[in-house]
Computed example of a mutant assay.
Amino acid sequence: MTAAGLAAGYAADLVLGDPARWHPVAGFGSAAAALERRVWADSKAVGTAYATVCTGAATAFGFLAQAATRERPAARFALTAAATWAVLGGRGLAAEGTAMAALLDRGDVPSARRRLAHLCGRDATNLGSDELARAATESIAENTSDAVVAPLLWGAVAGIPGLLGYRALNTLDAMVGHTSPRHRRFGWASARADDLANLIPARAAAVLTAVCAGSHARDALRVWRRDGRRHPSPNAGQVEAAFAGALGVRLGGVNTYRGEPEDRGTLGDGRPPVTADLRRAVRLSTMVGMAAAAVAVAVAS
Rank of each mutant, 00 (worst) to 15 (best):
residue 1 M to Y: 03
residue 3 A to K: 02
residue 4 A to S: 14
residue 5 G to V: 15
residue 5 G to D: 12
residue 11 A to H: 06
residue 13 D to T: 11
residue 15 V to E: 05
residue 21 R to V: 11
residue 21 R to K: 12
residue 26 A to K: 10
residue 28 F to H: 03
residue 32 A to T: 06
residue 39 V to K: 07
residue 41 A to P: 06
residue 43 S to R: 08
residue 49 A to M: 06
residue 50 Y to S: 08
residue 53 V to E: 03
residue 53 V to H: 00
residue 54 C to R: 04
residue 55 T to A: 04
residue 57 A to G: 13
residue 59 T to Y: 00
residue 60 A to Y: 04
residue 61 F to L: 15
residue 68 A to R: 12
residue 72 R to W: 10
residue 79 L to S: 07
residue 80 T to I: 12
residue 80 T to N: 06
residue 81 A to S: 09
residue 83 A to Q: 03
residue 85 W to H: 13
residue 87 V to K: 02
residue 90 G to F: 08
residue 93 L to C: 01
residue 94 A to E: 08
residue 97 G to D: 10
residue 98 T to K: 13
residue 99 A to Q: 09
residue 99 A to G: 15
residue 99 A to W: 06
residue 100 M to P: 09
residue 102 A to F: 01
residue 108 D to T: 02
residue 109 V to R: 07
residue 109 V to N: 08
residue 111 S to G: 08
residue 117 A to M: 11
residue 117 A to S: 11
residue 119 L to S: 00
residue 120 C to P: 00
residue 122 R to Q: 09
residue 122 R to I: 12
residue 126 N to I: 01
residue 128 G to C: 09
residue 129 S to I: 07
residue 129 S to C: 01
residue 130 D to M: 11
residue 132 L to N: 01
residue 133 A to F: 15
residue 137 T to H: 11
residue 139 S to D: 03
residue 140 I to T: 03
residue 142 E to F: 12
residue 144 T to D: 02
residue 145 S to R: 12
residue 149 V to D: 03
residue 151 P to N: 06
residue 152 L to P: 01
residue 153 L to W: 00
residue 154 W to V: 07
residue 157 V to D: 06
residue 160 I to W: 00
residue 163 L to F: 01
residue 164 L to G: 00
residue 167 R to W: 06
residue 168 A to E: 02
residue 169 L to Q: 09
residue 173 D to H: 14
residue 174 A to G: 07
residue 177 G to N: 04
residue 177 G to T: 06
residue 179 T to C: 14
residue 180 S to L: 13
residue 184 R to S: 12
residue 188 W to D: 05
residue 189 A to H: 05
residue 192 R to F: 00
residue 193 A to M: 15
residue 197 A to N: 05
residue 201 P to W: 02
residue 201 P to T: 04
residue 205 A to D: 00
residue 210 A to D: 01
residue 211 V to I: 14
residue 213 A to K: 10
residue 214 G to I: 10
residue 218 R to T: 11
residue 219 D to V: 01
residue 221 L to R: 15
residue 222 R to G: 07
residue 225 R to L: 14
residue 235 N to G: 04
residue 235 N to W: 10
residue 242 A to Y: 01
residue 243 F to I: 07
residue 246 A to P: 05
residue 247 L to T: 04
residue 248 G to L: 03
residue 249 V to K: 02
residue 252 G to R: 08
residue 252 G to F: 05
residue 254 V to W: 04
residue 259 G to S: 08
residue 259 G to Y: 06
residue 260 E to Y: 08
residue 262 E to D: 08
residue 265 G to Q: 09
residue 266 T to N: 03
residue 266 T to P: 00
residue 267 L to F: 08
residue 281 A to F: 13
residue 282 V to F: 10
residue 286 T to N: 02
residue 287 M to R: 15
residue 289 G to P: 00
residue 293 A to V: 05
residue 295 V to F: 01
residue 296 A to K: 04
residue 299 V to A: 14
residue 300 A to G: 12
